[in-house]
Protein backbone atom coordinates (compact mmCIF):
# COMPACT_ATOMS: atom_id res chain seq x y z
CA UNK A 1 0.00 0.00 0.00
CA UNK A 2 1.60 3.25 -1.01
CA UNK A 3 0.43 6.48 0.50
CA UNK A 4 2.20 9.69 -0.38
CA UNK A 5 2.29 11.89 2.69
CA UNK A 6 2.42 15.53 1.83
CA UNK A 7 1.60 18.09 4.49
CA UNK A 8 2.41 20.86 2.06
CA UNK A 9 -0.62 19.93 0.01
CA UNK A 10 -2.70 22.82 1.39
CA UNK A 11 -0.40 25.33 -0.23
CA UNK A 12 -0.41 23.68 -3.63
CA UNK A 13 -2.44 25.05 -6.50
CA UNK A 14 -5.84 23.54 -7.13
CA UNK A 15 -5.29 24.14 -10.80
CA UNK A 16 -8.06 26.72 -10.86
CA UNK A 17 -6.57 30.19 -11.25
CA UNK A 18 -4.39 31.31 -8.35
CA UNK A 19 -6.28 29.15 -5.86
CA UNK A 20 -4.52 26.88 -3.37
CA UNK A 21 -6.29 24.13 -1.44
CA UNK A 22 -6.18 26.15 1.76
CA UNK A 23 -8.57 28.60 0.09
CA UNK A 24 -11.14 25.85 -0.19
CA UNK A 25 -10.97 25.26 3.53
CA UNK A 26 -11.33 28.95 4.27
CA UNK A 27 -14.38 29.32 2.01
CA UNK A 28 -15.82 26.18 3.56
CA UNK A 29 -15.33 27.55 7.05
CA UNK A 30 -17.06 30.73 5.91
CA UNK A 31 -20.13 28.76 4.80
CA UNK A 32 -20.15 26.75 8.01
CA UNK A 33 -20.04 29.89 10.14
CA UNK A 34 -22.68 31.69 8.06
CA UNK A 35 -25.05 28.71 8.17
CA UNK A 36 -24.61 28.21 11.90
CA UNK A 37 -24.98 31.83 12.95
CA UNK A 38 -28.05 32.39 10.77
CA UNK A 39 -29.62 29.21 12.12
CA UNK A 40 -28.74 30.22 15.67
CA UNK A 41 -30.49 33.56 15.26
CA UNK A 42 -33.72 31.79 14.29
CA UNK A 43 -33.27 29.19 17.02
CA UNK A 44 -32.83 31.80 19.74
CA UNK A 45 -35.80 33.93 18.68
CA UNK A 46 -38.20 31.06 18.06
CA UNK A 47 -36.87 28.98 20.96
CA UNK A 48 -37.37 31.85 23.40
CA UNK A 49 -40.95 32.44 22.25
CA UNK A 50 -41.74 28.72 22.49
CA UNK A 51 -40.02 28.40 25.86
CA UNK A 52 -42.11 31.28 27.21
CA UNK A 53 -45.26 29.70 25.76
CA UNK A 54 -44.51 26.49 27.63
CA UNK A 55 -44.44 28.36 30.96
CA UNK A 56 -47.76 30.17 30.45
CA UNK A 57 -50.76 29.11 32.53
CA UNK A 58 -52.99 28.92 29.43
CA UNK A 59 -53.13 25.25 28.51
CA UNK A 60 -53.68 25.75 24.80
CA UNK A 61 -50.64 28.03 24.45
CA UNK A 62 -48.27 25.79 26.38
CA UNK A 63 -49.56 22.82 24.34
CA UNK A 64 -48.29 24.53 21.18
CA UNK A 65 -44.80 24.65 22.67
CA UNK A 66 -44.98 21.05 23.83
CA UNK A 67 -46.16 19.77 20.44
CA UNK A 68 -43.38 21.67 18.68
CA UNK A 69 -40.70 20.23 20.93
CA UNK A 70 -42.01 16.69 20.58
CA UNK A 71 -42.16 16.92 16.81
CA UNK A 72 -38.79 18.52 16.19
CA UNK A 73 -36.89 16.44 18.73
CA UNK A 74 -38.14 13.09 17.48
CA UNK A 75 -37.42 13.37 13.77
CA UNK A 76 -33.79 12.97 12.62
CA UNK A 77 -32.03 16.13 11.50
CA UNK A 78 -31.39 14.70 8.05
CA UNK A 79 -35.07 13.88 7.50
CA UNK A 80 -35.91 17.43 8.52
CA UNK A 81 -33.34 18.73 6.05
CA UNK A 82 -34.86 16.64 3.23
CA UNK A 83 -38.28 18.03 4.11
CA UNK A 84 -36.99 21.62 3.90
CA UNK A 85 -34.98 20.96 0.77
CA UNK A 86 -37.13 18.60 -1.29
CA UNK A 87 -40.69 19.11 -0.07
CA UNK A 88 -41.35 22.56 1.36
CA UNK A 89 -40.30 24.54 -1.76
CA UNK A 90 -43.02 22.73 -3.75
CA UNK A 91 -45.66 24.10 -1.42
CA UNK A 92 -44.60 27.74 -1.44
CA UNK A 93 -47.25 30.10 -2.84
CA UNK A 94 -46.79 30.81 -6.51
CA UNK A 95 -44.71 33.89 -7.25
CA UNK A 96 -42.39 32.95 -4.39
CA UNK A 97 -42.05 29.34 -5.52
CA UNK A 98 -40.76 30.19 -8.99
CA UNK A 99 -38.46 32.82 -7.55
CA UNK A 100 -37.11 30.39 -4.95
CA UNK A 101 -36.55 27.56 -7.44
CA UNK A 102 -35.43 29.50 -10.53
CA UNK A 103 -34.66 33.06 -9.51
CA UNK A 104 -32.18 32.14 -6.79
CA UNK A 105 -28.82 30.54 -7.32
CA UNK A 106 -28.92 26.90 -6.19
CA UNK A 107 -26.47 27.56 -3.37
CA UNK A 108 -28.63 30.39 -2.06
CA UNK A 109 -31.84 28.37 -2.03
CA UNK A 110 -29.90 25.48 -0.50
CA UNK A 111 -28.52 27.87 2.12
CA UNK A 112 -32.04 29.00 3.01
CA UNK A 113 -33.24 25.40 3.34
CA UNK A 114 -30.36 24.47 5.65
CA UNK A 115 -30.76 27.59 7.78
CA UNK A 116 -34.49 26.95 8.18
CA UNK A 117 -33.75 23.33 9.08
CA UNK A 118 -31.00 24.12 11.61
CA UNK A 119 -32.94 27.03 13.09
CA UNK A 120 -36.18 25.13 13.64
CA UNK A 121 -34.39 21.98 14.82
CA UNK A 122 -32.31 23.88 17.37
CA UNK A 123 -35.28 26.04 18.44
CA UNK A 124 -36.83 22.94 20.05
CA UNK A 125 -33.69 22.51 22.16
CA UNK A 126 -33.41 26.21 23.03
CA UNK A 127 -37.10 26.14 24.00
CA UNK A 128 -36.48 23.42 26.55
CA UNK A 129 -33.56 25.31 28.07
CA UNK A 130 -35.51 28.56 28.28
CA UNK A 131 -38.43 26.75 29.92
CA UNK A 132 -36.12 25.09 32.44
CA UNK A 133 -34.47 28.42 33.19
CA UNK A 134 -37.76 30.19 33.82
CA UNK A 135 -39.09 27.35 35.96
CA UNK A 136 -35.93 27.36 38.05
CA UNK A 137 -36.72 30.88 39.26
CA UNK A 138 -38.51 31.24 42.60
CA UNK A 139 -42.27 31.59 42.11
CA UNK A 140 -42.15 34.74 44.25
CA UNK A 141 -40.33 36.64 41.49
CA UNK A 142 -43.42 36.52 39.28
CA UNK A 143 -45.62 37.61 42.17
CA UNK A 144 -43.29 40.49 43.02
CA UNK A 145 -43.28 41.70 39.43
CA UNK A 146 -47.07 41.43 39.11
CA UNK A 147 -47.58 43.11 42.49
CA UNK A 148 -45.64 46.12 41.20
CA UNK A 149 -48.12 46.39 38.37
CA UNK A 150 -45.95 44.97 35.59
CA UNK A 151 -48.04 43.23 32.96
CA UNK A 152 -47.15 39.65 31.95
CA UNK A 153 -45.14 40.77 28.92
CA UNK A 154 -43.04 43.21 30.96
CA UNK A 155 -42.67 40.64 33.72
CA UNK A 156 -41.01 38.26 31.24
CA UNK A 157 -39.06 41.00 29.51
CA UNK A 158 -37.55 42.68 32.60
CA UNK A 159 -37.67 40.13 35.39
CA UNK A 160 -37.90 36.50 34.26
CA UNK A 161 -35.98 36.27 30.99
CA UNK A 162 -32.89 38.26 32.07
CA UNK A 163 -32.50 35.89 35.02
CA UNK A 164 -33.39 32.73 33.10
CA UNK A 165 -30.85 33.46 30.35
CA UNK A 166 -28.09 33.89 32.91
CA UNK A 167 -28.88 30.50 34.40
CA UNK A 168 -28.95 28.67 31.08
CA UNK A 169 -25.76 30.01 29.51
CA UNK A 170 -23.90 26.69 30.05
CA UNK A 171 -26.51 24.44 28.38
CA UNK A 172 -27.10 27.06 25.68
CA UNK A 173 -23.38 27.02 24.99
CA UNK A 174 -23.52 23.34 24.21
CA UNK A 175 -26.50 23.88 21.84
CA UNK A 176 -24.57 26.72 20.22
CA UNK A 177 -21.60 24.39 19.63
CA UNK A 178 -23.98 21.70 18.35
CA UNK A 179 -25.42 23.90 15.63
CA UNK A 180 -21.92 24.34 14.19
CA UNK A 181 -21.43 20.58 14.14
CA UNK A 182 -24.94 19.95 12.83
CA UNK A 183 -24.41 22.45 10.01
CA UNK A 184 -22.20 19.82 8.34
CA UNK A 185 -25.39 18.17 6.98
CA UNK A 186 -25.33 21.01 4.45
CA UNK A 187 -22.65 19.01 2.61
CA UNK A 188 -25.27 16.35 1.90
CA UNK A 189 -27.35 18.66 -0.29
CA UNK A 190 -24.35 19.98 -2.18
CA UNK A 191 -23.44 23.12 -0.23
CA UNK A 192 -19.68 23.64 -0.07
CA UNK A 193 -19.28 23.94 3.68
CA UNK A 194 -16.14 22.93 5.56
CA UNK A 195 -16.91 19.21 5.40
CA UNK A 196 -17.75 19.27 1.69
CA UNK A 197 -14.54 21.16 0.90
CA UNK A 198 -12.58 18.61 2.91
CA UNK A 199 -14.12 15.74 0.99
CA UNK A 200 -13.43 17.50 -2.28
CA UNK A 201 -9.79 18.12 -1.35
CA UNK A 202 -9.41 14.50 -0.32
CA UNK A 203 -10.81 13.32 -3.63
CA UNK A 204 -8.79 15.77 -5.77
CA UNK A 205 -5.44 15.22 -4.09
CA UNK A 206 -5.75 11.69 -2.69
CA UNK A 207 -4.16 13.14 0.47
CA UNK A 208 -7.13 12.24 2.54
CA UNK A 209 -5.34 11.93 5.89
CA UNK A 210 -3.99 15.46 5.63
CA UNK A 211 -7.31 16.87 4.48
CA UNK A 212 -9.33 15.28 7.26
CA UNK A 213 -6.71 16.10 9.87
CA UNK A 214 -6.88 19.76 8.94
CA UNK A 215 -10.69 19.65 8.99
CA UNK A 216 -10.82 18.14 12.48
CA UNK A 217 -8.26 20.69 13.65
CA UNK A 218 -10.39 23.52 12.31
CA UNK A 219 -13.57 22.14 13.92
CA UNK A 220 -11.69 21.57 17.17
CA UNK A 221 -10.29 25.10 17.23
CA UNK A 222 -13.64 26.57 16.28
CA UNK A 223 -15.28 24.64 19.10
CA UNK A 224 -12.72 25.77 21.65
CA UNK A 225 -12.89 29.44 20.60
CA UNK A 226 -16.68 29.45 20.74
CA UNK A 227 -16.56 27.88 24.19
CA UNK A 228 -14.09 30.49 25.45
CA UNK A 229 -16.29 33.21 23.98
CA UNK A 230 -19.32 31.90 25.86
CA UNK A 231 -17.31 31.65 29.11
CA UNK A 232 -16.32 35.27 28.65
CA UNK A 233 -19.96 36.20 28.09
CA UNK A 234 -20.99 34.28 31.19
CA UNK A 235 -18.47 36.20 33.29
CA UNK A 236 -19.51 39.50 31.78
CA UNK A 237 -23.19 39.16 32.64
CA UNK A 238 -22.55 37.67 36.05
CA UNK A 239 -24.40 39.51 38.80
CA UNK A 240 -22.28 40.57 41.78
CA UNK A 241 -23.16 38.84 45.03
CA UNK A 242 -24.92 36.01 43.31
CA UNK A 243 -23.35 32.58 43.21
CA UNK A 244 -26.15 30.64 41.60
CA UNK A 245 -29.50 31.93 40.54
CA UNK A 246 -31.18 28.54 40.37
CA UNK A 247 -30.68 27.86 44.05
CA UNK A 248 -34.27 27.60 45.15
Amino acid sequence: MNYHWDWGIFFKSTGIGQEIYLHWFITGLGWTVALSLSGWLIAMLLGTVLGVLRTLPQRSLSAIGTAYVNLFRNVPLLVQLFVWYFIVPDYLPEPIQTWFKQGLKPEISGFISVVACLGLFTAARVCEQVRTGIQALPRGQINAALALGLNPWKTYRHVLLPQAFRIIIPPLTSEFLNIFKNSSVASLIGLMDLLAQTKQTAEFTANLFEAFTLATLIYFTLNMSLMLMMRWLEKRVKVPGLISLGGK
Partner: peptide, 15 residues
Protein backbone atom coordinates in the same frame (compact mmCIF):
# COMPACT_ATOMS: atom_id res chain seq x y z
CA UNK B 1 -49.42 49.43 40.87
CA UNK B 2 -51.35 51.34 43.55
CA UNK B 3 -51.23 48.51 46.10
CA UNK B 4 -47.77 48.03 47.54
CA UNK B 5 -46.76 44.54 48.56
CA UNK B 6 -43.85 43.24 50.63
CA UNK B 7 -43.03 39.52 50.57
CA UNK B 8 -41.62 37.04 53.03
CA UNK B 9 -38.59 36.34 50.84
CA UNK B 10 -38.10 40.00 49.77
CA UNK B 11 -38.22 39.09 46.06
CA UNK B 12 -35.89 41.83 44.94
CA UNK B 13 -34.84 41.25 41.35
CA UNK B 14 -31.33 39.82 41.77
CA UNK B 15 -30.10 40.82 38.31
Amino acid sequence: SHVGMVFQHFELFPH
